[in-house]
Amino acid sequence: MALQRQKSPGRTIGIRRRPLAEPVESQESQRIAAALARRAETAGQVADTMVSTWRDIDAVLSPIIGQLGVAMLYKRSLYLIGPAHPWLAGMHEGKQASVDLAALKSAFAQQSSANAAAAGGAFLHTFHDLLSSLVGPSLTERLLRPAWAHFSSGPPAQDTSP
């Protein structure tokens, strides 16, 4: 079955066939990392950007897939980038059904700015890829549009709420 069938000619992010279990520092995550670095110079600013981005993601996704759904995607993404960024290892553990942004912020703030930007790029990209693998790139793009505006390489996001 063609799970990635695209209705609208939207951006395609990531490579569909790449196994999620081995996230590579792809061009896309480098691009997101670069965008992060542009917006945030220090690790603390990267941490703030991560927190605000995840707040945005939670705000657009949890009404649709539930808080638990968002938390599961968040943890799975952390788990996937854990091997490449050992200082994030263990963050996906725990039973709480919500996103622990305080822990995320403090972990990022303790890194060098380059490390933080690279990990942040990989984290957001892996999450984007994960969601795409579940609901397809075009719906992912549609759902994340309000939260993804800063990192988008496509046309600027439009406020489409009625």
Partner: peptide
């Protein structure tokens, strides 16, 4: 199914 209709 039209992704563009979602949230609109």
């Amino acid at each position: 199914f039209d992704s563009e209709l979602i949230n609109r």
